[in-house]
Design a protein around this nucleic acid. Structure first.
Lengths: 181, 181
DNA sequence: TATTGTTATACTCTATAACTATA
DNA sequence: TATAGTTATAGAGTATAACAATA
């Protein structure tokens, strides 16, 4: 699942010196010298790999991939699961509140809510204090889905990061939150 | 910069008990009782926030945002900078190799290379050993751009994570790489 | 037969403008 | 006047199929 962002791996350097290029032709009437050509065997991505942002993105994509695969079993996109999970934890939440939490624009939220409603996971009731808004609630099927999907997601993540110690996992969580909070 | 993935913040819980919902109507001919309605003040995203993947994504988005802003000064998208940086470090790299590194499909790479070429940052020369392929090289303007952009990116990231100690930054880098490598 | 680069094209995701009903 | 939800639509990003040239 790509996303307008680099994903590299290699580290070995087997290419010509960085920035090396054919010398500029000085004379005006001379025949241009044939430009040098190289073949790259091992791609060197050392600069990108030195960036925290690059590594954070790759790690994120890796875990998101695990989530995507896990949610395929429920025929849910990640954003759809997130929506249901939030409604599950916040009965009566409004469309706007979901938009803010999920960083989805209101026009794009409409369809998602409609799909989840048509699939029988969501229902809408009037908001107790705001006549413009609608509160969202899980149906029984929605609650069952969330109650099944959440622990499964948690388990698939645990399996994916099991090569890190519990201390490392906690450390990573703390550092990540320190980064964006 | 959204992206099919949740972005939440709140932690406080000021909503009804999780999963609470109106009792099911038992009788068949009875009038259905009015469903309970709630208002959510503080959104509770505690489950999502417990996931490493969620936190990794939020941290990643935060840093990518810094990169995007930084590269706007060069009128470059992140993927375009990454492309130029890779060509800079790998003179003669092919389109296919870039596709693999950047996780971009070949048909979608064509336009990027064309744009960077038209803007005078890239040039294409025949591949020394493969008549089907073309090697990519930075022009002088391209080299100048990369040599200016790379340290600027590095600096903007450093500023963005300056509230972490150098040890924490190194620790985070190691843990992130452990996660996806 | 397989691969590189390419075209055309479809599909998904994201963004903007504008409308209505209510606050 | 501002905001919640909505419609329509534009734009960017991502995906598949197929082709010519070369391996």
């Amino acid at each position: 699942m790509p996303a307008h962002q680099p994903v590299g791996t290699s580290t070995t350097k087997a290419t010509p010196a960085r920035g090396k290029r054919a010398p500029k032709d000085a004379g005006q009437q001379e025949t241009a010298p044939a430009a040098e050509v190289f073949a790259v065997d091992q791609v060197n991505a050392s600069f990108l790999e030195s960036l925290l942002g690059y590594n954070a993105r790759r790690a994120s994509l890796s875990l998101v991939g695990v989530f995507v695969k896990c949610m395929e079993g429920f025929d849910l996109k990640i954003v759809e699961f997130s929506l249901l999970s939030l409604v599950g934890g916040n009965p009566g939440i409004t469309s706007r509140q979901l938009c803010q939490q999920l960083d989805v624009l209101p026009p794009n939220m409409v369809g998602m809510i409609e799909v989840m409603t048509r699939r029988g996971f969501l229902e809408r009731r009037p908001h107790p204090r705001d006549g413009r808004a609608m509160g969202l609630y899980l149906t029984e099927a929605g609650r069952a889905l969330v109650d099944q999907a959440e622990p499964q997601l948690k388990a698939s993540e645990s399996a994916a990061v099991s090569h890190l110690s519990v201390e490392e996992q906690q450390q990573l969580l703390n550092l990540l939150q320190k980064l964006y909070r």
